[in-house]
Simulated scan of single mutants.
Amino acid sequence: MGRKVLVLNQDYSALTICSVAKAFLLVYLKKADLVSESQTENLRSISQSFPMPTVIRLHKYVYLPYRGVMLTRQNIFRRDGHRCQYCGTSDDLTLDHVLPKSRSGKSSWDNLTTACKRCNSRKGDFTPEEAGMPLRQRPFKPSFIMFIRDFSGMIDETWLPFLTRKEKKVTD
């Protein structure tokens, strides 16, 4: 049961993704409502059958002052499709600073990219332009909604209406 469930805040904005087991527990404990369920699968106990959630909505609003995507090695790899941004291979991946750290390059979304060890070593202490190694895609910081929609793997069709909504700006 490796399926995932989209969790919505009380105002129907996308909040996070969780496991089916966690989503079922939230619905069963009446902490969330079932918004959408699988049309093909059910959860079964010895004597009962329950709908398998695909989207749930929390009863209480969860305030998140910062809704961004954390800068981690795995999130950089996800953003770049687990491919070297210089040659396209998916073997021996590591992170590369587009502007090298030795030349005041920061560890940030727009300066880190996925590279294989061979390309990273070949590029060395140069920028991609100086090394004659153009990037397949410039590094960027994904938005929270974009990250869930595009980089979290398989998404359920029932998620799409909630992932295309505009993110609200908090003005307090």
Score class of each variant (00 low, 15 high):
168 K>C: 13
61 Y>W: 12
116 C>F: 02
131 A>Y: 05
108 S>I: 03
32 A>C: 06
53 P>Q: 06
113 T>D: 01
41 E>V: 00
123 K>I: 01
146 M>P: 09
66 Y>W: 13
126 F>K: 13
39 Q>F: 08
76 I>V: 15
3 R>W: 12
155 I>F: 00
8 L>D: 00
79 R>Q: 02
151 F>E: 13
51 P>Y: 00
153 G>N: 12
23 A>Y: 06
138 R>A: 09
157 E>D: 15
109 W>C: 00
83 R>T: 05
12 Y>Q: 11
75 N>D: 11
47 S>E: 14
32 A>G: 07
57 R>Q: 11
72 T>Q: 06
43 L>H: 08
24 F>A: 12
44 R>Y: 10
52 M>T: 15
92 D>T: 13
54 T>E: 12
147 F>Q: 10
146 M>C: 12
21 A>H: 13
88 G>I: 15
135 L>K: 05
56 I>S: 05
114 T>D: 04
125 D>M: 05
49 S>E: 12
5 V>D: 03
134 P>E: 01
60 K>I: 11
138 R>V: 11
135 L>H: 06
27 V>R: 05
17 I>M: 08
13 S>N: 15
159 W>E: 01
17 I>F: 04
5 V>G: 00
97 H>C: 02
167 E>A: 06
15 L>G: 08
131 A>T: 10
15 L>K: 09
164 T>P: 02
139 P>S: 03
84 C>R: 08
43 L>V: 13
169 K>D: 14
172 D>N: 07
72 T>M: 07
42 N>Y: 04
115 A>N: 01
157 E>P: 09
53 P>G: 00
90 S>F: 10
3 R>G: 14
90 S>A: 14
84 C>N: 00
117 K>L: 11
96 D>C: 06
157 E>H: 11
110 D>C: 09
102 S>V: 10
25 L>V: 13
130 E>A: 15
2 G>W: 08
30 K>W: 12
103 R>Q: 08
10 Q>E: 14
138 R>H: 12
151 F>G: 03
166 K>F: 09
141 K>S: 06
158 T>K: 08
166 K>M: 15
79 R>S: 07
52 M>K: 15
